[in-house]
Design a protein around this nucleic acid. Structure first.
Lengths: 249, 249
DNA sequence: CCTTGCGTACTTGTATGGTAGTGTTCACGG
DNA sequence: CCGTGAACACTACCATACAAGTACGCAAGG
């Protein structure tokens, strides 16, 4: 570990570096859901004090990746159905809106760049290098957002997609997974190239909807990674509260 | 000030309370854009230590409401064209997507509750109580999101809308402002009541696009609140593009 | 008069104590 | 053997102290 060594060389502040390392550790499931995280322990492992560790954990809590219980402990958040649904909603809403603008504004160079990324993704099919594929995947989606001038869409989406990234990491490499993804990406690019915002929106929506296909198997294989949900009770209590408020007013 | 007095009575942690107070102070422009915020000064004024103040400021930086420059100072963020556009993009994307789900799922009670809020808004026209109107406005938009089961859309949207809220607060009470807003809200509710997601999406988009109509005047009246940006006529270009979008759809 | 250089008074970032509240465990009584 | 309770170890939260760095003012020199 030992973060402080390459202080200014790698990234900015100590807090930022701790945040990045922790976030990566959680998203790769190196820190499994439910794991207890102690400020003292992490500070010692990283060779820094508790303050930047604490501030990093506060940021991760905003991302819903850790849960901080006062006077008790900090834990890697378990995967929740509602968290996944929320994340997917946010990601779909923002990126689909952004790709609409991209389809309207995209230049020929932009489209060529997109096709280049997809082509490189197709190449990873031979080496079966999923890590590299995912890097290109992020690059592709980020490009879709920035082309339309909506870089903010990608930054917010990425921050909200912690749970989705974990599931993606846990997903087994299905047979023609990469080929399928490349096909869907191509469909999106084609719509963008045709300057058809509605079609681009629809194609990207289809693509993003395919993220959680293997969720059932994952939940079956790692039941301890998931929160047993009081799904009913939660939904009911929420609607009850809303109803209460509505009635009261 | 003196936050620590009613520690557990009011809200949760000290950090949370400081965050809320600071956020409110910034959004109401009580803390004007460009104001220097000293951690020491704030800590003394609130009667707490620097730590929770600092953590609150870090959260506000994520919201783009303050800018922290290491070894220099913390400042209330000036209003920026890009920040406004980003916030509006996020808000529009999320809330429009949410209202689509609301239109699909809304029950009769939900619609009645929405109409009740709009009716109360119409009443504020007489008293010209803009503060109360804005409270009802937030409640209305929050309800639109929660009805479709997208409470997360409102929370993210609200968190990202700091700049928009400041502009809203600075907006002069135009003559028939409230009547106009009520009219637009009614149009949205009608579409939701008709269970027409596409129409609801479009009506809400029109409504949200009307937020920045008086921006030019505000920028002229408070030039020091705005970041001097590269292109002078950005307000014009913004309204032009909004018009463009509206026509295009 | 203008420029230059240093000292001081600030700033944020990080490190370290001290406090209240939690879960756990182990001894003791039934 | 089982239930109960009190001491203990641990946590996050907040307060405080130290370190690194920037802006500003004032004085000295050109």
């Amino acid at each position: 570990m030992e973060i402080k060594r390459s202080a200014r060389a790698t990234g900015g502040s100590t807090r930022r570096q701790v945040y990045e390392v922790l976030r990566a550790s959680i998203e790769t499931v190196e820190f499994p859901p439910g794991l207890r995280l102690s400020e003292n322990d992490l500070a010692e492992r990283f060779g820094v004090s508790r303050t930047p560790v604490r501030e990093a954990l506060l940021g991760l809590r905003d991302d819903r990746l850790v849960e901080i219980v006062p006077q008790l402990g900090t834990f890697v958040a378990r995967i929740t159905h509602s968290a996944l649904e929320d994340a997917q909603f946010i990601r779909t809403s923002l990126e689909c809106a952004a790709v609409g603008d991209a389809a309207a504004d995209a230049s020929d160079d932009d489209i060529a760049a997109l096709r280049a990324i997809v082509a490189r993704q197709a190449q990873t099919r031979d080496s079966a290098d999923l890590a590299h594929f995912y890097v290109l995947d992020d690059e592709f989606h980020a490009s879709l957002c920035t082309i339309g001038g909506r870089a903010v869409a990608w930054s917010i989406s990425q921050r909200a997609s912690g749970h989705l990234n974990r599931v993606r990491r846990l997903s087994l490499p299905v047979h023609d997974y990469i080929a399928e993804m490349v096909s869907q990406h191509t469909a999106v690019v084609d719509a963008v190239a045709a300057h058809d915002p509605v079609a681009a929106h629809a194609r990207l929506r289809d693509h993003l909807g395919a993220v959680l296909v293997g969720l059932g198997e994952i939940a079956q294989e790692h039941p301890d990674y998931f929160e047993e949900e009081a799904d009913r009770a939660w939904a009911l209590s929420l609607s009850a509260r809303l109803e209460h408020r509505a009635v009261r007013r």
